[in-house]
């Protein structure tokens, strides 16, 4: 499948990625190959195969509703590039 310029722009916008001209061309080619691979998968007959929603045959992994101490906020914000008054500081976000 041919990935158009509009498609790669839309995908990079969704992923918040700024691609250089060279990266865009490479991305178009690689994503095209991934989509082609889906076509290959689509040729398989899956009529009698149940849809799988998880790779492991595991279900109902639960936790009891019991409070445990949270992490100290000086530690949790340790990697934050910017912080203020105990909060993570980010560029102004308008709603």
């Amino acid at each position: 499948m041919k990935i158009t310029d509009e498609m790669i722009d839309y995908i990079s916008q969704l992923a918040r990625l700024e691609l250089s001209g060279e990266e865009r061309e490479k991305g178009k080619e690689e994503i095209g190959k991934i989509i082609d691979y889906m076509d290959t998968l689509n040729t398989l007959d899956t009529t009698d195969i149940e849809a799988m929603s998880h790779a492991f045959p595991v279900k109902n992994v639960f936790r009891e509703d019991v409070v445990k101490p949270s992490v100290d906020r000086d530690i949790i914000t340790l990697n934050a590039p910017q912080k203020k008054e105990g909060c993570f500081k980010v560029p102004k976000t308008v709603d």
């Binding site: 509703d65 019991v66 409070v67 445990k68 949270s70 992490v71 906020r73 949790i76 909060c87």
Partner: peptide, 21 residues
């Protein structure tokens, strides 16, 4: 009493980022 995927408290209020992990 706790959040959906971790054991932090759901109590209302509290200083910012003191109920997090």
């Amino acid at each position: 009493k706790t959040k959906i995927f971790c054991s932090c408290t759901t109590e209302f209020g509290g200083d910012p980022n003191t109920h997090v992990c």
